[in-house]
Amino acid sequence: MLISPTPLEFKRIFGGCRLNIEDLVKFANQFVAEERRSKTPVLLKATAGLRAVPEAKADAVLRTVRSTLKDSGYQFQDSWADIIKGKEEAALAWIAANYLRGSFDVDSDVPSMGVIEMGGGSTQVTFEVGLDEFERVAEVDRFQFKTGMGRVYSLYAHSYLGFGQDYAQSKLQDTMGSSQSSDPCYPVGYERVKSGIRQTGSGDSTQCRTNIRSLLFQETTAPGRYEHELPVRGRFAATENFYYVRNDLKLPNKEGVCPTEAEAKEVCGLSLTDSAADRACFALSYQLAFLGALGAVDVPGIEVEVQRKINGGDIDWALGAALAHMLSSRVETETQGISMTMSVALTLVVALALLAAAFSMVCRPTGMAKGYDSTPTLFGSKSTGLE
């Protein structure tokens, strides 16, 4: 289960963090019998938001989380609650996608697939590379994964910190300044007051992408400019915000398609009264600009499709974390790739994605769980050996 609060929601005391972790534990209790909990590991992995805050504040959050999980009744060690590196977040999503895809199965001829995961604070890009090229990958982007059957995958796994959709949207507003009276990244009818200046939306996706490229993508860490960036290749699943935006807009094709200029133009032309139009104009424009900066749009040999699920399971780095944890724990392996059997009915990973504000640290208010139905589908509908 993932939690994704916005920066404005970090205005409560640390006690709120404990309460929210306890809510997650109650959620887990629905699926793990009481007699099995002491043998069921619980993990917490914080991502981009907590990586971006001062170390002392991040440590304070983790101390609260660790204390709460120790009292949860589940199997827990302090090292199981931590802040993961950007490349780890990227690689875990790749592991999840390719596990669900069947790429790790014994004698599988299913090629691996890359993943572009656009979150709120960062965007991750991960794909497999050959051993020769892997030796030239920067250490910060280098990740190797070994399946339970001993096969090693070498990955380029990069996290563009600060280039998640929410952070980028906020930063673009700040970068524009108060001298401009209109904002093309918002639909007609939208307005805000900045430094006493009234700014209105003009709903122009083309100009919005131009602003994104000129005001956000000139930094040396931006997509298309990062010095250690490798050219993308092959097939990619574009997930997280790529899917959520389409779902919020109730677009007919939520998955299996790539964002298009025509879609962005149409959404930016919606009136403010249309559901999700105020944020979706920027979102679709930003997604197109990001993919364009990567060189992933209308390029032969590169295929990008929005996907949330593969074979019934969610493409989620939390699943990748669960699988990696089980491998590191050296539990009994089965004959199918990295599928495993545990001494418990289900190994549950409670992964909490903490988005943190610069000035105050707490967990999200009640009701901010994102992206899941009441019944989790991390492991898909097929038999995986995890049940």
Rank of each mutant, 00 (worst) to 15 (best):
Y372P: 04
Y226D: 10
G121K: 09
L50I: 07
K39I: 01
A81G: 01
S159H: 14
S178P: 09
T333M: 12
S79P: 03
H228F: 15
L43C: 04
D107H: 08
Q173F: 12
D274A: 10
V152Q: 11
P365M: 12
V193Q: 15
P252I: 08
A280K: 04
D107F: 09
H325A: 14
R18F: 02
F27W: 07
S67K: 12
V140H: 07
A52R: 13
C17G: 13
T64E: 15
I212P: 05
A276Q: 14
Y244M: 07
E22Y: 04
K26Y: 09
E263A: 00
L354A: 15
A237W: 01
A276L: 01
S202T: 11
L100A: 11
M340N: 05
E229H: 05
D71I: 00
Q124G: 04
G367Y: 15
K265D: 08
L62A: 07
G201T: 13
L272W: 06
E89Q: 10
D316K: 10
V350M: 06
T366S: 06
D174M: 09
A283E: 10
R192C: 11
V110H: 02
V257L: 00
L161F: 08
K70N: 13
A353W: 11
Q30L: 14
D174F: 02
M118N: 06
A238P: 05
Y226P: 01
F14C: 08
S38N: 11
S339P: 03
L288R: 00
E332N: 11
V362Y: 15
F359D: 15
W94D: 05
S170R: 15
A56G: 14
D71Q: 15
F127E: 06
S72F: 02
A222Y: 04
